[in-house]
Nucleic acid binder design. Structure first.
Length: 416
RNA sequence: GCGGGUGUAGCUCAGUUGGUUAGAGCGCCAGAUUGUGGCUCUGGAGGUCGCCGGUUCAAAACCGGUCACUCGCCCCA
């Protein structure tokens, strides 16, 4: 406890930020329910194996970004770096194949040990949607439609671009990977240091390198589209047709790849140019082999996750509902204090938002009521108490009137 | 893990080639106004100059280290 500061890459969330998060999440939940998704909440930590096996031993997330620790009984546990692995695990351990198809939504904190920068922190928050047990491309379309609806509702759809690509099935992906290795091998010594390493580890990643020299070489690299087998091609065109049917604008980006090993077929990202280096605001894809790979029954899956912090950066005040304006109760004197406490309680039971003025003379208390953005103030002085009335003052117009103590709730109706 | 930038009041920042009591605006508190807010005026509180060490007669300033924040790389929501 020596350092009284938040742990690196973590933040306290309050006031406007908290309200923005709540705004985004409540719209997300409403849209997800509309699409027939049910809420699932999985633990924020799992056995380390759950993530290691699903994300791939060599992925960055596993090799350098996991928050892993040993608990008192010696178990290796990891704070979740993403949602899909935990949900897939829940699907298996809950025997949910009997219930498939399953449509879930979830939201909560994620943890990755990374160097913080704009739009990236060690504890961050995601919303997440998954469909398990539907191998048909209609699920891809539905999930993308849901994402687009959600983004529209929070006013962001016209500020992001949907890019999609197909990574093909296992066979197509392997063929493409081989072709890429052959191609890049030619230019190996011209590639950046990073990309030379990628060539061994994950050649697909070279495609979205930000290095200028790499970009020139990538420009002439073979396209995944030419390596998709019949089945994969049909699948991808079904997804594209579905998007067109629903008027969801998108662009095919042949260079779009995903970092985690488990993706196949559809991969997509909603991106913005407004957030600097971290432009991906919501992204996901299909993972048909994942559950089987984890040791569960062969079950197709597709899902996406959106970053709350990144979405919140984009949400502007005009889309946010205004904070509810309270009514301030201002007692002056001992008797009024007691009456005020009772009145405040009664009004709150009836659903009013009540602020209490505790200190200072009337002027100070009104000033504080003003600062709290109160719509009205209820003034309770000694003489009012004697006559069993209060003064209700409209803080916008300055108009005020005396109201019988028993009729206060009625008089406050306009300020609800 | 790697590279750049920045750390001075609650917040945003100024602070001359090193020079003695470190400033402004906003915010906060109080008064002008013993029961009437927003505007105005007056006054006040609030600082280990991120931390440790070094150079110097003298360091907020220069040097080294360290921590934090921030932007970028890797990677990702």
């Amino acid at each position: 406890m020596a350092r009284l500061q938040p742990v690196r890459g973590t933040h306290d969330i309050l006031e406007i930020k908290a309200r923005t998060f709540d705004y985004i999440v409540s719209h997300f939940k409403a849209v997800a329910e509309r699409y027939g998704h049910g809420e699932i909440s999985t633990p924020i930590f799992e056995f380390t194996e759950v993530f290691k096996r699903t994300l791939g031993e060599t992925s960055d997330v596993v090799t350098k970004e996991m928050y892993t620790f040993e608990d008192r009984s010696g178990e290796q546990l990891t704070l979740r770096p993403e949602y899909t692995a935990g949900i897939a695990r829940a699907f298996i351990s809950g025997g949910m194949q009997q219930l498939a198809p399953c449509k879930f939504y979830a939201y909560g904190p994620m943890f990755r040990y990374e160097r913080p920068q704009k739009g990236r922190m060690r504890q961050f928050h995601q919303i997440d949607a998954e469909i398990l047990g539907v191998p048909e491309p209609q699920a891809d379309v539905e999930l993308l439609a849901m994402a687009a609806d959600f983004l529209r509702e929070i006013g962001l759809l016209d500020r992001v671009t949907l890019e999609i690509n197909s990574l093909g099935d296992v066979e197509s992906r392997q063929a493409y990977r081989d072709a890429l290795v052959v191609y890049f091998q030619e230019y190996k010594d011209q590639l950046s240091q990073d990309s030379q390493e990628r060539l061994d580890r994950n050649p697909l990643r070279i495609l979205d390198s930000k290095n200028e020299g790499d970009k020139a070489i990538v420009a002439n690299a073979p396209s995944i589209q030419d390596y998709l087998n019949e089945e994969s091609r049909l699948f991808f065109s079904a997804v594209c047709q579905g998007l067109e049917l629903l008027d969801i604008p998108y662009t095919v980006n042949e260079r779009l790849v995903r970092g985690l090993d488990y993706y196949s077929h559809t991969a997509f990202e909603f991106t913005t140019t407004e957030l600097g280096a971290q432009g991906t605001v919501l992204a996901g894809g299909r993972y048909d082999k994942l559950i089987e790979q984890m040791g569960g029954p062969a079950t197709a899956g597709i899902g996406w996750a959106g970053g709350l912090e990144r979405l919140a950066e984009l949400v502007t005040a005009e889309h946010m509902p205004e904070a509810h304006r309270p009514v301030a109760i201002i007692p002056m004197g001992g008797l009024a204090q007691v009456k005020a406490m009772k009145l405040a309680h009664d009004l709150r039971l009836q659903g009013f938002h009540i602020e209490m003025g505790y200190r200072g003379n009337l002027g100070k208390r009104l000033k504080r009521a003003n600062k709290a953005n109160a719509v009205a103030a209820i003034l309770m002085g000694e003489d009012e108490m004697a006559r069993r009335v209060v003064t209700v003052r409209n803080l916008d117009s300055g108009e005020q009137q005396e109201v019988a103590l028993s009729d206060v709730a009625q008089a406050l109706q306009p300020y609800r």
